[in-house]
Design a protein around this nucleic acid. Structure first.
Lengths: 221, 221
DNA sequence: GCGCAAACTTAACGATGTCAAGATTGATGC
DNA sequence: GCATCAATCTTGACATCGTTAAGTTTGCGC
C-alpha cells in the first residue's frame, strides 16, 4: 500500500529485501490453506515458501495470530464477494434467498480450511476488536445477508421484520450447515450419510418458510 | 472399566502406578477446559496436573488427538444429558422445541472450550470414523433432537416430515447460534451488540414457524 | 553521497508432541 | 509363596515450533 511495494518488488527481485512480504505472506497463506485443507500451518513453513527466514514475518506482523487475522480478513472479503456474486444479474428477488444461502455453504465447502480459520476463536481471540479490519470485513460480509433480506422484506417477499435480527438467524443457519459439513458431523448424522446439497436445500426451505410466516406471539418465556 | 481401576486407585494411592490414569486424564482435561476457556491445552501440563510424567499418557492414548477425542466424547454425552434434561418433566409438548433449543445453545455458552473442541476438525479429523465412540456419542446427542421432533410431529405440533432431515436443520441452526456466540461474531454483528438470549429466542421462533408451515414445493433448482 | 530507519538474517531460547529405553509394579500360574 | 510377564510409568532425548535479540543489508530522504 505505502511506498508502492509492487514497484519495489519488480525492481529488486529476490534481493535482501523482499519488497512486498506482507501481501506475499497473506497470499501464500491463502494458497497453503487451499491446498492442504486444514487450518494449522507453520509460520516457518510459510516463510520458507515465500523465501524468507523464519523471523522475517515479525517485521510485518506482531504475532502469528496477527497474520492469521490478516488471512481471515481476506477470507471474509472473498466470502462477501461470493455472496454478492451469487445474486448478481438475478432479477427474481424470490430466488435470491436460496441462491445466497447456497453460495454461503458452498464457500465453506470449497474452502474448508480458510472457513475454519475465519471462525476459529482459538487463534483469533473472541475480542475481535483486537483486529479492526477483521471485524469490519466480517460485518461487511454479514451486510450482504442483511441487505438481501431487507430488499426482500421491502418487496413483500418476506414478512416485515428487523433485517439485522433476521440476518442473524440466517447467518447462524448457514454457518451451522457449513460448519457441520466441514467438521464431518453431517456425514455421521445418518445412514446412509445425507447429501450436503440436499440437506442445504431442504433446510433453507424450512428457514424461508419461517421468514415468510407472520411473526407469532412468543409462547415460552 | 476393566479390572476395577477404582479399587486399585484406592489401594495404591500415588504409587508408581496411577491406577486410573485414563479417566483421570479425561476428567482433568474437562476441568482444564472449563477453567481457562480455550481448547488448546498442553499434554505436558495435563500430565503434570495429574501427577505423572509427560510420556505417561501414551500408555493409554495413541495420540494427543486420541485423548482429545475421548474428552470430546464425554462432552457429547454431557450435551445429550443437557438436552434430555431440558425437557424432562415437561408435559407441554409445544414448549419442548424452544426449551431444547435454548438448552443446546446454553450448553455451548456455558462450556465454550469444550464445545469448540467437540467441533474442532483440526484436531479431530473429519473422518470421525477414526474414533467410533466419539461418533456414537455425537449421534446419540443428535438423537435427542430428532426424538423430540418426531414426538412433536406425531402429535401434530409440527408439520409431518422426515425427523432426521428436520433434525439436521435444527442442529445446524442451534449449532450456528452457539458457534457465532462463542467465537464472538455475534457481538460484532450489531451496534449495540445483540443480546444472545434474545437472538436465540427470536431465531428459534422463526425456525419453529418454518417447521410448522406445510412443506412447500421447491422453487429453485 | 551520507546517514538512518525499515527490512531482513542468523542464532538462540523455552516449550511442545513424541519416542526409545529402562525401571517398577500388580496379577497370574505353578 | 514365588518367579514371571505384561502393563504401566519415568527418564532422557529428538525435531520442531513460535518468538526474541543482535547484527547485516538496503532503499530513501536530505
Amino acid at each position: 500500500m505505502k511506498n508502492c511495494p509492487v514497484r519495489r518488488l519488480i525492481r529488486s527481485k529476490q534481493g535482501y529485501h523482499h519488497g512486498d512480504l506482507r501481501n506475499a505472506l497473506v497470499n501464500e497463506g491463502l494458497k497453503l490453506l487451499e491446498q492442504d485443507g486444514h487450518p494449522d500451518f507453520t509460520l516457518r513453513d510459510l516463510a520458507r515458501r515465500v523465501g524468507v527466514s523464519a523471523a522475517a514475518p515479525y517485521a510485518h506482523f506482531l504475532d502469528k495470530n496477527a497474520l492469521l487475522a490478516a488471512i481471515a480478513t481476506a477470507g471474509f472479503n472473498r466470502l462477501r464477494a461470493a455472496l454478492e456474486g451469487a445474486i448478481r444479474n438475478e432479477s427474481e428477488l424470490t430466488d435470491q434467498f436460496l441462491l445466497m444461502g447456497q453460495a454461503y455453504v458452498r464457500f465453506g465447502m470449497d474452502h474448508p480450511a480458510l472457513y475454519e480459520l475465519m471462525f476459529a476463536s482459538e487463534e483469533l481471540p473472541p475480542e475481535r476488536d483486537e483486529y479492526p479490519e477483521l471485524k469490519a470485513a466480517g460485518q461487511a460480509a454479514f451486510g450482504a445477508l442483511t441487505g438481501m433480506l431487507e430488499r426482500m422484506q421491502r418487496q413483500g417477499f418476506l414478512r416485515p421484520g428487523d433485517p439485522e435480527a433476521d440476518g442473524l438467524s440466517v447467518w447462524a443457519h448457514v454457518h451451522g450447515l457449513a460448519s457441520l459439513i466441514i467438521t464431518g458431523c453431517l456425514a455421521c448424522a445418518g445412514d446412509p450419510a445425507p447429501q450436503p446439497a440436499e440437506v442445504v436445500r431442504s433446510s433453507l426451505g424450512i428457514l424461508l418458510s419461517g421468514l415468510r410466516a407472520p411473526a407469532r406471539a412468543e409462547r415460552v418465556a
